[in-house]
């Protein structure tokens, strides 16, 4: 992100943010409510565009792309995990995973089942979201996010609605993905989740107030 600002009326949700996330990094974006975390997440996730500045993804400025191109980038390069899980209520766990495949390329039930197996839910594949616990739903959400092998996984408060045990399971999955080279960007309030990341960026009032990569790599500022 180069000099990225997002302005809603008089509110500067992001204020001249400069930020570089390397491929394969596990980054936690932390900060109080209203600090601009979600806005940053939406922009990185190609669901919103900045008011000014450049957002380069693989060298392509997504700030200049149209709705259709942004949709294609979301589909091809980004996996999303939400605090509220956002599973489709009338589809089973495996069908929810297959929906991501459907929009990406080729729905393959066997592959979707493998993804569920990876998150420990092979035996719950035919269950509807309402028949799953919160932790199980979030794991389905993780399986859906990783099914298309995205370059980046964006997670918004992924453990916000989970108990400790399920939080541990999800963080373990993140560790696995990280070890495989997946870029992870996690927005969180949870200090423990933040501490699991290799880099923590703190936002306040739309500006980066701290970034431990500064000390590690000597770059990134707000």
């Amino acid at each position: 992100m180069k000099n990225v600002s997002k302005i809603y009326g008089e509110l500067r949700a992001l204020d001249n943010v400069n930020l570089t996330i390397e491929q394969g990094e596990w980054v936690a974006i932390m900060g109080p409510s209203g600090s601009g975390k979600s806005t940053a997440m939406n922009i990185i996730g190609c669901m919103d565009k900045p008011t000014s500045g450049e957002v380069l993804l693989d060298g392509q400025d997504i700030a200049k792309l149209g709705r259709r191109e942004l949709t294609e980038i979301r589909r091809d390069k980004i996996g999303l995990i939400f605090q509220q899980f956002h599973l489709i209520s009338y589809l089973t766990a495996v069908e929810n995973v297959m929906v991501a495949q459907y929009y990406h390329s080729l729905p393959d039930e066997a592959e979707a089942l493998e993804a569920l197996e990876r998150v420990g839910l092979a035996d719950r594949a035919k269950h509807l979201p309402s028949q799953l616990s919160g932790g199980e739903q979030q794991r389905v959400c993780v399986a859906r996010a990783l099914i298309n092998h995205p370059e980046i996984i964006l997670a918004d408060e992924p453990t916000g609605n989970l108990d400790e045990q399920n939080e541990r399971i999800v963080l373990d999955l993140f560790r696995q993905l990280h070890s495989e080279g997946t870029t992870l960007v996690v927005v969180t309030h949870d200090a423990e989740v933040g501490a699991s990341a290799e880099r923590i960026i703190t936002l306040e009032y739309g500006r980066v107030t701290s970034d431990n990569a500064d000390t590690k790599f000597g770059k990134g500022n707000g």
Partner: peptide
Amino acid sequence: EIGLRKALGAS
């Protein structure tokens, strides 16, 4: 759900 589908890449 529509927002989710679009977030997942639905045209």
